[in-house]
């Protein structure tokens, strides 16, 4: 006899929500990331600092007490709080505070722009390499490996050296340095997604490669790529400062933290604190970006 216990087909429908599955709050991925971030006080705190630095850079003309270029032969290398210069002056008598605030503009630009460019180029190449067949993959990835083989700072120095100094050339060289790494991250993420069942299901329902990439791959690759990109910002700031320090990036008299560090270094024994200021600015900015990036990584690392 197969007559089962009276449990049988009761009036309870199969899909009913009595199991306590959340019916009220349906949270998408980005919503849940936002929720986690809102509750992460460390990341929020450092995020505020990053925001302040960015705002200071954007509104530099309104905040800075002096012009960053205004020199004064008498007022050179003055200490903290000297005659209306709260953070002193540099070796040409320019106001340190103003130069640091203006310098943030270039440093942040040098931190963000190469990363954005590298993300776009490297990400695209990576997705193509990850999704395309073996030949395209090999061609793209081996080319990237060639760049990857050099230490990043060395590569940046070499490219900048070959192209000459200046902000634009600095951005180009840093973009070139970051592209292979970005490409690799995107390729790995794509290759992982590519073998999942829902990609096969999409193929089975008749979708073409481009449609599949647009609907099913990009959204899932974006996460890891974004996380990696955010961690590159601080590296980019440091590298750009390094280039400027070596005279390969920003040229005088532009206010740039790396360049300031380089020119002030000769006054190390006269005004040690003043010399350290650009370095401190670089340090704080890059560490804040790093910590925020870490927080974002943790928030995005939701297994869903």
């Amino acid at each position: 006899m197969n007559k089962p216990v009276a449990l049988a087909v009761a009036e309870i429908p199969a899909d009913s929500d009595f199991d306590g599955a959340p019916a009220t709050k349906v949270r998408g991925y980005w919503q849940s990331v936002g929720y986690r971030l809102r509750h992460d006080w460390v990341t929020l705190g450092f995020g505020v600092i990053v925001l302040l630095i960015v705002l200071a850079a954007v509104f530099a003309p309104l905040i800075a007490p002096f012009s960053p270029y205004a020199q004064s032969i008498i007022g050179r290398l003055k200490p903290f709080g000297w005659r209306g210069h709260p953070w002193g002056t540099d070796e040409l008598g320019r106001d340190m505070m103003s130069r640091l605030i203006y310098g943030g503009r270039i440093s942040l630009m040098m931190g963000l722009v190469p990363v954005v460019i590298a993300t776009m180029i490297g990400g695209t190449l990576g997705v193509i390499g990850g999704f395309a067949g073996k030949v395209a993959n090999t061609a793209i990835m081996r080319t990237m490996d060639v760049f990857y083989a050099f230490p990043s700072i060395l590569l940046a120095v070499a490219i900048s050296g070959a192209m000459g100094g200046g902000i634009v050339n600095g951005i180009i060289s840093l973009s070139l340095v970051f592209t292979p790494a970005m490409c690799r991250v995107a390729e790995t993420a794509t290759a992982q997604v590519k073998n999942l069942d829902y990609i096969e299901a999409a193929r089975a329902s008749g979708a073409g490669t481009l449609t599949i990439i647009r609907h099913h791959v990009l959204g899932n690759v974006l996460g890891p790529v974004f996380i990696y990109a955010s961690s590159l910002v601080s590296v980019s700031i440091l590298l750009a400062s390094g280039l400027s320090f070596l005279g390969l990036g920003v040229q005088p008299p532009e206010p740039d933290w790396g360049l300031m560090l380089s020119t002030l270094r000769q006054s190390l024994y006269v005004d040690p604190l003043g010399c350290a200021l650009p370095g401190i600015a670089i340090f704080i900015t890059s560490i804040c970006f790093n910590l925020v990036s870490d927080g974002i990584r943790a928030a995005m690392d939701v297994r869903i």
Binding site: P4, L7, V9, A14, S16, D19, G20, A21, P22
Partner: peptide
């Protein structure tokens, strides 16, 4: 004779 629904959260 399936048990309706799914286990609780």
């Amino acid at each position: 004779a399936a048990i309706p629904g799914s286990p609780p959260d």
